[in-house]
């Protein structure tokens, strides 16, 4: 007897695009990011209703609304904890998280190391524009020293955060960077991140055309970016990745910095395993108070 294999639905990028018209400024880098996400999701091939897309607050955090996935535009800095709860509650879902550099590395910075060490199978995309867009041009944690903004009239006196080096130091197993100046490359790293079994991080240099620095625009990216493949970087080499990550803010490297070829077990997988092991020990819910009977 022969069985015909089930016909799996296939998806195209447009299946992930919602009817909502983005409120981003024309030319904002975030348009490129959402395009990259549509393409990556189409190749991954999960149905939109099986995707939970969680963001914080910021221009960038509007992104879930422009997709057909289940979206949640939460509060500033807390997308990661919410996403982890979703994944733990239903490990079958594809869980995406996105937000700005302020969202992820300032107000939400305390959540990043913990999300990483828990190795849940989720993908975190930071749209790094080195500025606060939504609140109109204040300093961000990734702003360059000396940058003049409305909250740094005479130039910032603080050194910026290096997101790539941070997450590598926290132990992230998948770290990549992209830019809308290279859409194919961007869609590719997002797809690889989603496919990676564990916590994956993609920093997207996503220019703010309204408040961002001139040297940080798509045109400049196109002129200066260097793919990691072109310099023969081995993504299995974590120390080499950290070396390259040090150049964040000086040279724009794109592609996969680090991909642990031997991913540790995911938390969601281990949780499932524990649930399976302990299921038979459950007292039926309606008799749970029996545990308090004095024997």
């Amino acid at each position: 007897m022969t069985t015909t294999p089930p016909i799996l639905p296939t998806y195209q990028a447009k299946d992930f695009k919602s009817d909502l018209k983005p409120i981003w400024c024309p030319g904002c880098g975030d348009f490129g990011v959402v395009q990259g996400i549509y393409r990556a999701l189409a190749s991954v091939g999960r149905a939109p209703h099986d995707i939970a897309f969680i963001s914080g607050i910021g221009c960038s955090s509007r992104i879930p609304g422009y997709t057909t996935a289940y979206g949640f535009n939460s509060v500033h800095g807390r997308a990661l904890p919410i996403a982890q709860g979703i994944k733990l509650a239903n490990p079958d879902l594809l869980v995406l998280v996105a937000g700005g550099d302020g969202d992820g590395f300032s107000i939400g910075g305390g959540h990043v190391p913990h999300a990483i060490r828990r190795t849940l199978d989720i993908t975190y995309i930071v749209m790094d524009n080195q500025i606060y867009g939504l609140t109109k041009g204040q300093l961000s944690p990734t702003s360059k020293r000396g940058l003049k903004t409305v909250t740094s009239e005479y130039g910032s006196l603080e050194a910026p955060v290096n997101p790539l080096l941070y997450v590598l130091a926290y132990g992230a197993n998948f770290v990549a960077q992209g830019t809308p100046a290279d859409m194919a490359g961007l869609a590719d790293v997002i797809e690889q991140a989603i496919r990676y079994p564990g916590f994956s991080f993609v920093n997207v240099q996503s220019p703010c055309v309204t408040f961002g620095m001139e040297g940080q625009q798509v045109k400049a990216h196109r002129a200066t970016m260097k793919t990691l493949a072109s310099i023969n970087h081995d993504p299995a080499n974590r120390l080499a990745a950290m070396d390259l990550a040090q150049q964040y803010g000086q040279s724009l490297h794109t592609g996969v910095f680090y991909k642990n070829p031997d991913p540790p077990p995911t938390l969601d997988g281990q949780v499932r395993e524990r649930q399976r092991q302990l299921a038979e020990k459950a007292i039926p819910r309606e008799r749970i108070l029996d545990m308090f009977v004095q024997k």
Binding site: S74, I82, G85, I86, L88
Partner: peptide
């Protein structure tokens, strides 16, 4: 946050 996520 995680509890809210589970509720979502």
């Amino acid at each position: 946050g995680a509890a809210l996520g589970a509720s979502i």
